[in-house]
Design a binder for these strands. Sequence first.
DNA 1: TAAAAATACTCCATAGGTATTTTAT
DNA 2: ATAAAATACCTATGGAGTATTTTTA
Lengths: 289, 289
Amino acid sequence: MNIRDFQYIISIAKHSHFGKAAEECNVSQPALSMQIQKLESAFGVKIFERNNKHVMVTDIGRKIIERAKNIIDETQRIDELIKIAKDPEAVEIRIGAFPTLAPYFLPVAIPKIIKKFPKLKIFLIEEKTEVLIKKLLAGEIDTAFLATPLPMEIPTIEYSVLFEDEFLLAVPPSHKFAGNKVINRNELSGESLLLMDDGHCLREQALDICSLIGVREKEQFRATSLETLRQMVIANVGITLIPKIAVRENDTLVYIPFHKPPPKRTISMVWRSSSVKKELLLKIAQNMI
Amino acid sequence: MNIRDFQYIISIAKHSHFGKAAEECNVSQPALSMQIQKLESAFGVKIFERNNKHVMVTDIGRKIIERAKNIIDETQRIDELIKIAKDPEAVEIRIGAFPTLAPYFLPVAIPKIIKKFPKLKIFLIEEKTEVLIKKLLAGEIDTAFLATPLPMEIPTIEYSVLFEDEFLLAVPPSHKFAGNKVINRNELSGESLLLMDDGHCLREQALDICSLIGVREKEQFRATSLETLRQMVIANVGITLIPKIAVRENDTLVYIPFHKPPPKRTISMVWRSSSVKKELLLKIAQNMI
DNA sequence: TAAAAATACTCCATAGGTATTTTAT
DNA sequence: ATAAAATACCTATGGAGTATTTTTA
């Protein structure tokens, strides 16, 4: 039994058409037909119910193809493994980061990675955490910078903690807290905060902190980016929490640190435990600390 | 690339010896050597570091073989799928059950299964829950009758609930409770109960109930089987909880039901979500209710 | 020097190509 | 009538066998 046979049945199932599948597999239609017949007689079951007009997958065929896809996936992983082994760093890496981290962290992180692994080809994707996890599990990205622990427990994902990003209180210069060198959590009770829109992990992180320190959300407004959030504070709409990594020097805003221990988010580098690049990813993660 | 190539490299890695591997694979030694050389030149990497005295797997070889094993596993699952499709019920099924369930439930359950699926070949294994879960995940058994929820959350396992097995209080005829038609949970406060030994899920179940109703364990004694436990109650050593399924008519013991809702354990049929037999197992489970 | 992998060579099964036929709409 | 799968037939590749050589512990 040849690996190619599995590609054949997957392709036929995909197109429901021997001719198109033959084209995709770069073989002639009769060759494909013959191989399928041989495979079916070897298995002793029909994989496709077909005549010259219609091709459809049988029940058992569907189950076989499901497994065949796993096999093809594994062979592709072997190819990737070999490619990596031949030139460990001349590899494509797709990296994700969530929107309230990406613009502040990636400009620091990526040059660090390139300096250590100059031959890496890096592709960046900025998406919400939920989307990144989906893409990671689907193999569309290799790794992501995410806040851990993840919102859901996923056993096939592992991660390496990079750093802790503490939150500061951002207030306009005219605000009553603007003169404070530090701020105590309980000084905030009664205040309400501007937060990010649904689906942004910064929103969830801030809400967690809010519930701890007895602060509520300012309900009238939700920001879709951290920069919008910052602009709203400048415009005197309210105050908010800003992660330290997003703090700029010489800003019109005033950033006040919390008393120790400050509220914070933990940023980690996350990958599939079955990733063929996991050793490289671990090296990268260790190099980032 | 042929599936057989993967079997070859797995076998060579297993024996670290081309000759023995050739024997296991039913090919001549030169044929095996040739195939490995072709595979290595196709991959462009050495899988084995070898001379005429020593064979050892390279780093990249180890990774390739890891994936190759997955591929061989999947092909075997395809074979099983086909075997099942050809004769859905003439299949071997390895069933596990834990010790405080097996002797009472299996004599009822197995005949039921055989009646519905007369061609099944059933093998039974009695082990503690922890061992059964391990065997299930390793593919050594196909299914198990276990108490759910399982002690740990395992995402690759799914189950179908069969029934709820309520606990009764077992006391000797001379005991002060022996005349009660029913018993209230709070009547037991201050009592202490005989329990099973560590590792038996009946122990954990009973301990859970104990903590709910404010009862403690009788520390001096731990039973290694439910029958021993029963004998100790008969011998006036103490009282205990016995699952209803283990209750016998005309026993020297007195079994007193609890007020509704009684303490109970939930018995389910458990299998790997990737099992090739899962459709049959689901049918069996539904037939048992 | 002996055990084990590699090489040399031969053979045959089979995968794949082209040309053609069958079949269902 | 036409599109598409099946069949027929031929070729080339490659997998496997036996006999032999090379290698190194």
